[in-house]
């Protein structure tokens, strides 16, 4: 079995009495794009800053390609590229000068070789035409892409991106998605955070949903959706004319049915229960003589799931 590119075990990060990350464990393989999602304050950025060796965890084991971050911080730094949230840029440098600073700092050769790498990275993030532009003159999305180019310079094996898509237009987001896929195809492990789940769903091969510093669900996109979305779902039933009242009355008496809303012959309601219970509910309504025309389950969108997670968390706290 190959060593995971990122391995976190029992990670905890505290700020005084506030627990930002609470016993989080996860693993990301090389070539995987891993999404970290959760509402603001879920502990995503703290986790990523620990991974980037910028924050020291209270405790826990963190390894990058088998290297222990706490034991060999310098070694680990050579393996990673990190892009913070609202990535800052110096206002007094041009785009290529900013990249040249870090290409030089990472020791990427001299003169032409270094410049060639800078041009490659600019091309990768579609900023070749902004090579000579001042950093201060770039738009928010372009700034994000320039910092991403900086992360790519030394060909890291792990890339850590904190809210990379914030401020990007749809076109830039698509480009980002493509860039991340390229990187993954090259065997780079990418961990990316966002509070917009749909944003990550498109670009990640696996996900982890966090709230209040804890991992709520992790796995492939469908697995996470299934795990978090199964507790309650919205069902819609369409009946023949004149049968809506009867159907609503029957549903009102059934277990696990709430929030019944009627729109003419369409009745939507929330059902909390298992799949067999859902089958029994439909069968029961039909057995009572209600002429059911269609029956549909609305899959929860990622946003709904996240809102649900956040609200549960808020209620819990």
């Amino acid at each position: 079995m190959s060593t995971p590119a990122i391995e976190i075990r029992d990670l905890r990060v505290d700020y005084g009495n506030f627990v930002a990350v609470n016993d989080v464990s996860l693993s990301v393989d090389a070539g995987e794009v891993f999404g970290l999602v959760g509402p603001n304050g879920a502990g995503k950025s703290s986790t990523l800053r620990v991974l980037a060796t910028l924050n020291r965890p209270t405790y826990g084991e963190v390894k990058l390609c088998g290297l222990d971050l706490l034991e060999d911080t310098e070694g680990a730094r050579r393996l990673l590229g990190y892009m913070p949230d609202l990535a800052p840029l110096p206002s007094d440098l041009k785009a290529w000068e900013f990249l040249d600073l870090y290409a030089h700092a990472y020791g990427l050769g001299r003169g032409k070789k270094r410049h060639a790498r800078i041009d490659e990275c600019l091309e990768e993030v579609h900023l070749t035409d902004k090579r000579e532009a001042w950093c201060r003159a770039l738009s928010r999305g372009q700034m994000q892409r320039l910092v991403l180019a900086k992360c790519l310079l030394h060909r890291p094996r792990v890339i850590i991106l904190d809210e990379p898509a914030s401020g990007m237009d749809p076109l830039s987001r698509r480009d980002l998605r493509l860039t991340l896929r390229h990187l993954a195809a090259d065997g780079v492990a990418v961990i990316v955070s966002s509070h917009i789940l749909s944003e990550l769903a498109d670009m990640c091969s696996s996900l982890c949903v966090m709230n209040h510093g804890r991992v709520l669900a992790a796995g492939s996109v469908d697995e996470v959706r299934a795990r978090l979305g199964q507790a309650s779902r919205t069902l819609t039933m369409e009946v023949l004319e004149g049968a809506a009242e009867q159907a609503a009355a029957l549903l009102g008496k059934a277990d696990g049915v709430t929030e019944i809303v009627m729109h003419g012959e369409r009745i939507s309601f929330i059902f909390s229960g298992t799949a067999p219970a859902q089958c029994a509910l439909i069968a029961g309504v039909i057995a009572q003589g209600v002429p059911v025309r269609t029956f549909e389950e609305q899959k929860s969108s990622f946003e709904d799931i996240l809102i649900q997670v956040a609200e549960e968390g808020r209620a819990g706290s």
């Binding site: 393989d29 070539g31 600073l101 030089h104 700092a105 020791g107 030394h154 065997g187």
Partner: peptide, 23 residues
């Protein structure tokens, strides 16, 4: 699982080469 990329050999300038210090 894809193979991880080979690590680029990073050779930051030596400390004593102040004129070559990136910062």
């Amino acid at each position: 699982t894809n193979d991880p990329p080979a690590i680029t050999k990073l050779r930051p300038p030596p400390v004593w080469q102040l004129w070559n210090n990136p910062i």
